[in-house]
Design a protein around this nucleic acid. Sequence first.
DNA 1: AAATTATTTATGGTTTCCCGTAAATAATTA
DNA 2: TAATTATTTACGGGAAACCATAAATAATTT
Lengths: 222, 222
Amino acid sequence: MFEKVLVTEDLGSINHGIANILHERTGVKEVQQAQYCDDAYLKFRRALRDDKPFDLLITDLSFKESHRQRELVSGLQLIDAIRLIQPDIKVIIYSMEDRPAKVKSFFKEQSINGYVCKGRYGLNELVQSVGEVYHNNTFISPLLANAMNKNNVFELKDYDLLLLKHLSDGLTQEEIRMYFKRNHISPNSISSIEKRLNKLKYNFKAKNAIHLVAMTKDLGLL
Amino acid sequence: MFEKVLVTEDLGSINHGIANILHERTGVKEVQQAQYCDDAYLKFRRALRDDKPFDLLITDLSFKESHRQRELVSGLQLIDAIRLIQPDIKVIIYSMEDRPAKVKSFFKEQSINGYVCKGRYGLNELVQSVGEVYHNNTFISPLLANAMNKNNVFELKDYDLLLLKHLSDGLTQEEIRMYFKRNHISPNSISSIEKRLNKLKYNFKAKNAIHLVAMTKDLGLL
DNA sequence: AAATTATTTATGGTTTCCCGTAAATAATTA
DNA sequence: TAATTATTTACGGGAAACCATAAATAATTT
């Protein structure tokens, strides 16, 4: 089982709860805690330098603002930062976020090993996930995994996302065309942009561009 | 000080934490807990029938789905339901939601007495809020109150919200006009709808309708 | 009641979006 | 390399949105 685990989470009570339950119900030897992403990062650095690296990170995603000046303000930033100094680190996210598209992106972008949804069964699932991840499997909260399967998530390319992003920022198709041209992103004709948009509208069953942007925002894609 | 308080919150650990701290740091005599809105409602009903009513409700807003069939699925529904049988009940919401517009609406729509933002100082603020509410004052988490003040929140009328809502649902201005006409909502000419929309765009500094809808969604207005 | 003011509605011109078709170019296959 | 197929681009007509101005109506003031 994992030797050394760090739990990052800004609510002290939850943090403690996790630490306790990991001690009790998994064979993890050492559980450390951090309430700020910056602290977590420093602990990782120090552990690495002392040749006693962590082998699992469990982190929340959102951290409330505070008086302290912060470098890393989100769990994702923390993960990215740690991966730079310790690429093989195993990561489990433990958060409220339950929008399939978002969670999917965490596995893709951050290559996380597990995702556990905070909620009534959260702690149980977290214990499970630690076991799975230790055996090199991935873990997703069952309810969420369910939603992600049946919900035939139409696969959005980066291109589509960028397009939607710019639309939601109020750019006209013409402005988007120019942007694509400047940045050598292809296809970049008005026609192609329209065609792509039509495909998106068809897939999401959106009545028009406004509707499309509103829907994708609700789905957490933007 | 309050005699009898109910805390509704689906994470057991947090629930316990709140109960403990209320016991320790306020003079509240009796603190009960509920993990489901439906349970909370039943406890209120029973207490009322037994002539030992609660005099404060502290509740979260969002509750994760579970296996159980539920009537009331959100804190807001719970509040509304309880207000029907016990109109004078004091209510404090304790939740992650930190969008000014939303919180504002809770004070307006649900006439809540306090709003505490979960976060690093959440529990401290919660203790404070109980004191304030007991003395018939309202309470809002300082950081949030701050944001709500400086953030010159352009006051949206119901009309505007409805308009934005329909826009985000993909209706054309013409369709919205017809809807307004059918439902005797005035003004209901295309011209007026455009004018209203222009005012909204100006106030939110939105470039076009898509941008406007995207922004208001981000602000939690829709 | 008349005059002033504010609000709502109407109208027309311009731009952008929407949608279909066709041409041009790129990629794949025979 | 020629032929086929897929992708990208161009173009045009009609609808909706955008914008400014003017007319009509409602509300307020004198």
